[in-house]
Amino acid sequence: MNDVLDVALRLLIVFVVFLTFPLIVGQTEHKVMAHMQGRLGPMYAGGFHGWAQLVADGVKFAQKEDVVPAGADRRVFQLAPAVALLPYLLVLLALPIGPGEGAVGQVLDAGVFFVLAVMGVGVLGSLMAGWASANKFSLLGGLRTAAQLLAYELPMLLTAASVAMAAGTVSLVGILDAFEWWWLPWQIVGAIVFFVAGLAELQRPPFDMPVADSEIIFGAYTEYTGLRFALFLLAEYAGIVVLCGLTTVLFLGGWHGPWGADGLGWVWTLLKTAVLAFIVIWLRVTHPRLREDQLQKLSWTLLVPLALAQIALTGVVKVVIS
């Protein structure tokens, strides 16, 4: 009974985090982006600096009619948002937030693989949406999504493998247990490659060609309205949370910190994740969208070689110190 309660509690916490953190990131994006552009952003909803703007947006989305285009493949079209969203929920389960086994939804033996695999599945949602919409722009968006995933999954995997090599385990908890501060400079190239590739996989600007509104309207999500559209947006922001959390855990030491790592480890994790989320927003505001061919070139001629170099470096250092 106690076990059941424990599991239920963990699931509940993960679910609550899944529902709130993306909204917090979204609201931060509203405000940070506004101020970076010399604006104020939402100011009215909720009274204090528009804190309830996303809640209001949610209410608006819930009120809208759920339209399925006449020529669309109905079932696939309706299923796509769930396929896009659920993987991120599953990933959150595996991210350790503090030291020990009590601070992770579910300890997984092959955590790195689980997380990357499930994140890759999330892209299937975009593909399904792009194809099922019966809209050429959606199809183009789906194609771009697929091309982007194929190009950027590889550097992500390679750099994650580099960390796994350094730690000698593929378990996220194990990686954190093995973390030392000097991993930071050692794996810095891998960290950057991982983060950039993750951004591309999430289709965040400057890698948002699959939803490039000035070229293909909104890519795979063009035909979506109401709650299903909101689910796609939620998936994007949940993706940011997951990517930042994952980068924190893999490269920035998660709950390790200069002090207080034992009791307040989770604060460190949250802090690092928040800083990374800020960087995600910052990059979005600052840099214009790449062209589709530049995107591919960046991956295959820069990120993949860098990732391989990182693996080589990791291997050499590992052999030297052992």
């Binding site: 940070v32 970076m36 010399g38």
Partner: peptide, 12 residues
């Protein structure tokens, strides 16, 4: 540039 703009008072 964007960071500097963020620290300035917005003109809205």
């Amino acid at each position: 540039v964007t960071l500097r703009t963020m620290t300035k008072k917005s003109v809205t």
